[in-house]
Amino acid sequence: MSITFDKVDYIYGKGTSFEKRALKDISFHIRDGEFVGIIGHTGSGKSTLIQHMNGLLKCTGGNVYYDCKDISNREYDRKTLRQNVGIVFQYPEHQLFEATVGKDVAFGPNNLNIPGLQADVRTYEALKSVGIDDSLLDVSPFDLSGGQKRRVAIAGVLAMKPKVLVLDEPAAGLDPVGRRDILDMIARIRREENITVILVSHSMEDVAEYVDRIMVMNDGALEMDGTVSEVFARRKELEEMGLSVPQISLLMGDLEDAGIIKDTGIYTMEEAVRVLSQKLLDRRGRNQ
């Protein structure tokens, strides 16, 4: 379903000495089925932003619409909203609490008063889609490895069957192979379930390969919003914000500066390999 922010403002601790404008006049529209990355450094307002999407925070100015309905409306059913917009917070494994993996994943469905059998089915399905084996159902979540805990925690949100899935740094603290596994898994779930996915990260590198669109937050404002290549083309500005651009982008920029290739907007490995080896082949062909 679509999410629309219209001139959203959020002021923290209004009237106290630590009053802070955490979101500044933010407007955007995320369509059904989009794969969006939200990038920004720590304290840029990313977390505040996503908490507005399921009504955990209420904006102090402007409006937030889910499926074209204003969620700040008094009559709006917030419980259903939280079911529809699932948020996986940073280090979600820190919120595990039940005695077994199965019970923990079923926490969401139980809160929605979904009848027993149906809740069980959801639990199985959710665990299956994050790649946790049935044999772990009755194991304590605290006995799992770090990567498994992370998956179980994500399953806990998937079991709500959200239509929009928001993940805050889902790969933080994992080793490179673990990172890739988690991100691949999210991309797969998105395809299979046909849902909207919003990936929050402070690293361009992770997000670039997966998402279609990037929103860049800086100091509470939505600084950029566009396709991946549109955003990466503004390399200098990104660097000024203290954000990193993918190594491939940087390298292509260097090659461009050296007058070797023309402006390409390339940021993925495949594209870079294609363009650079093609050029090598051309040159060799000419030399022969």
């Binding site: 419980k79 948020i87 809160n111």
Partner: peptide
């Protein structure tokens, strides 16, 4: 609290026992 609320936890309604139980997560 926010993470559990995102999973449908409710800390604001129900009687005192229900609320106390809601705090376990």
């Amino acid at each position: 609290m926010k993470a559990q609320q995102a999973r449908g936890a409710d800390f604001e309604s129900g009687n005192i026992f229900k609320r106390a139980k809601a705090l376990i997560p």
